[in-house]
Design a binder for these strands. Sequence first.
DNA 1: TATTTGCAAATTGTCGAAAATCCTGTTATT
DNA 2: AATAACAGGATTTTCGACAATTTGCAAATA
Lengths: 249, 249
Amino acid sequence: MNKQRKPTKATVVLEKLQDDILTGKLAPEEKLPIEVLKKKYGLSGSPLREALSRLVVNGLVKEEQQCGFCVAPLSLDEFYDIYDIRARIESMALEMAIANGDDAWEADILASWHKFSKYIDPRLNKNVDPKKWDELQKEFLFSLVKACGSPWLLKIRAMLFEQTARYRAVCISAKVHDEKGTIGLLKMDEKLVAAVLARDAQNACQISEEAYRMSVAHTAEELKKRMPEGIKHTESHNERREEKRRKRS
Amino acid sequence: MNKQRKPTKATVVLEKLQDDILTGKLAPEEKLPIEVLKKKYGLSGSPLREALSRLVVNGLVKEEQQCGFCVAPLSLDEFYDIYDIRARIESMALEMAIANGDDAWEADILASWHKFSKYIDPRLNKNVDPKKWDELQKEFLFSLVKACGSPWLLKIRAMLFEQTARYRAVCISAKVHDEKGTIGLLKMDEKLVAAVLARDAQNACQISEEAYRMSVAHTAEELKKRMPEGIKHTESHNERREEKRRKRS
DNA sequence: TATTTGCAAATTGTCGAAAATCCTGTTATT
DNA sequence: AATAACAGGATTTTCGACAATTTGCAAATA
């Protein structure tokens, strides 16, 4: 009998904040003044600070002592870093899952692959919702490694996944309309599923890493196009301060 | 130009709590009632909850909604898991560092290895402080991977390192008095340094993993002696997993 | 006897205000 | 003119009290 405990306001607002950051409603480098957030989310300072503190640890929020919180910045450097590490971790988990997985694991892969592939296939579905695309893909990728047997590896993986979501969000809509690219992705993932179910770890990892490489290249293109805006925002922020100082002197 | 900001009480008490948990002053599963902590650390609830919230995210503290916080439990299951993942992550970082490291990196390895090895060698130093042993070893191991080039990998590694510290602490004093074991460790680490400086990644990783395996075996022995009965019941399962890991390499 | 119900005590979670700290623009000093 | 010292205002951080929730225990019920 699992006792259902009422979630605290802190955890509720944590999820809301996380979602707002991941979807870009709160922009990178944006300042997060408590006074504003209090009104926006309709609660007091304590649970807010609690939520923000948690987000600091997993890297979505940055804190400067005595100067409050802000959304963690985005950078190309970090983007390449996270994707690189994420691909390696994913391979590691994949290898372990292939060694450990049982029948239920295989069944789960087939099920989530079915749902994901049918949904995003432009030949079957013309109206894909980027949000749902992301959700289904997440479930599919998770099903592959779920059976790796290591809670900590899954925890680390989840953390990296969350981080990359922020970068993906920048250009997710672009992907939806790239019919040719989508079909390529489908074919590649299909090969991946086949390799995993055949318990061919080496091949599976190779395909997985290849998929990551393509994804990185694609996303980086979009990022370079759009990041200037994101960065300009913070730069202008800094420059405004600089300018003010210059004017006065 | 680095402005020194005064640290908040929350961050101060965070470090104190972390230290108390890592050194075992706060026992695993021990309840952490705020009323008690308030008196113990001499401050109010808000910064305390903030610190505890952070510790929840990185896994040192467990929270149950509406029922407060407690020190995260220790279990053999988790012990094997963390060490396994940590060894793999360490190999990954080692490989990258060997590929990326420069002269300064090599120099740093030699320096910290010198300090560490001289200090723990029972033929040179009879009065070793376990705390300092741990500190020097930490610095030495960090120097090996520092040049891996990935901030995120280092962050993950640091997190796992912290976690294992708690398990090590249970039996750290035993290690200090095992003269033969210490000399064995020294020899092994010496070979590791040689392999790293020779940029022989494969060999280095092999030695590193071998060292972890020995460490796991040794620590597990001590843990089994000291841990309460209830926790041991999954032991056979864990050992099977260890077997699998051993065979693979 | 075993299970459920209901109340009191204890503890957690939240609030609003007070204290501490930082930033900005002005004035004083060299 | 450049630098340092200093208030005023804004923001962050902390406190102490209040509200909400759980837990323990005893009485009631089957």
